[in-house]
Design a binder for these strands. Sequence first.
DNA 1: CGCCTATTTGAACCGGGTCAAGCATTGTGG
DNA 2: CCACAATGCTTGACCCGGTTCAAATAGGCG
Lengths: 239, 239
Amino acid sequence: MMRRSSIHCSSCENYECLIKKSLSTDEAERLAMQKATLNCKKGQQFIMEGTPVSGLFFIYKGKAKVLKTGIYGKEQILRLVQEGEIIGHRGFGTKNKYAISASALEDAILCNFSNETLDLMMKKIPELTYELMLFYADELNRSETKVKKLAQMTVREKVIDTILFIQRKFGINHKGGINLQLSRKEIADYSGTTEEQVIRTISSLKSEALIKCSGKMISIPDTRKLQSEISEHNFYLDQ
Amino acid sequence: MMRRSSIHCSSCENYECLIKKSLSTDEAERLAMQKATLNCKKGQQFIMEGTPVSGLFFIYKGKAKVLKTGIYGKEQILRLVQEGEIIGHRGFGTKNKYAISASALEDAILCNFSNETLDLMMKKIPELTYELMLFYADELNRSETKVKKLAQMTVREKVIDTILFIQRKFGINHKGGINLQLSRKEIADYSGTTEEQVIRTISSLKSEALIKCSGKMISIPDTRKLQSEISEHNFYLDQ
DNA sequence: CGCCTATTTGAACCGGGTCAAGCATTGTGG
DNA sequence: CCACAATGCTTGACCCGGTTCAAATAGGCG
């Protein structure tokens, strides 16, 4: 993980950034300068479960996944993270150890705010604390919806739900394909099933013309139609 | 749900209450008086998924469960809530509709802070916002651990984990039994399985002398021993 | 005591996980 | 540029855990 010259918040173009949103005074800007900027290659792990918390990460460029490693090394992907979002925030609560791991899905540039900087910023900027609270409340909603889905959906529904979700979150590219290519294994680790089940489900969906594939790229010809495969029994799809 | 004369925060004995913790000034106390106090009978639902958010609830007395209703009316219990804890807080994020339901597990007395009161309090008391943020971050941790467990544990492990959890959280009574009696169905709804599976697992555990039962009351003769039934493959039991 | 609900047990079915083998794709070094 | 290795993807077959259905039993409460 390479350290590089820091990118200043004032010249950053991620206007959805929680930090930047809350920066109004010069003082806040000065605090925000205390961050480090890091380069991270595809596949590289930048947060490791169980290690001491070293602040909050912000995805300046790239995509990442947040996961827990479980029984026999099986991964559970908890979040797929886009440019402009934060990670590693789980350090606050009762613990000072990361409860999750995170690694880059493609080459990424990360901003890192240390614990001290973050504490200082929150003390000086109540709006930031408020924004963080909203962020956690939202994430909690999402996570609890996921709990329900894992407990109640069939494998087919879970895989469809995952595909719809990544399209909703990451959008589509110029070819009409979903703008994030995951391996079958990763789709399985997010859906809470196995690689083989994902492959079988995707094969079925292809033969039913509900999706199209070329390699890892998946596209959905008719989103509404695919949605109807799960929505009859799932009224609150608030993921 | 019966409205009753308000209990004043200053005479409240729940010292762990997020609200009370943050009340230092007279002004804060005055704001906290703006709350309503409600009586709620066992089984009564006081938050309904999909209805507009009417603020935050605090459990002054009693116990409650937080759940999502899913496919074919199957319930997923997300949280078991004790005296001194808050509920209904999910209103913040992007939505103004409750994403969860809540009902009393036994007769309860609830404090309710309206949206307006809460907003006002957070603006005036940064410490409260901070405490709420920590609360959400903690809850998020718990929820994400639950996601992993649901995806990876066997039914037997999930049921054992649930029994251990409710003992850890609610403690034991004078008879050595867990201080919260849930129905088999409720244990199933929390564990993410069916009533029959819970019954079968509990039967096995009884015959293995890992637990004892009399009616709904469960007791664990040797917690460590029961723990070892799941912990070999689960290193981070941070629920 | 009798009704209603909760719990328990049995049996059958099936979804989904596991194992194994074959195929495709990508990458690397000679 | 090809050969070969390594990795990822796909498919088939098998089997087991877990859900479902049904029926019996126990327990709680008016």
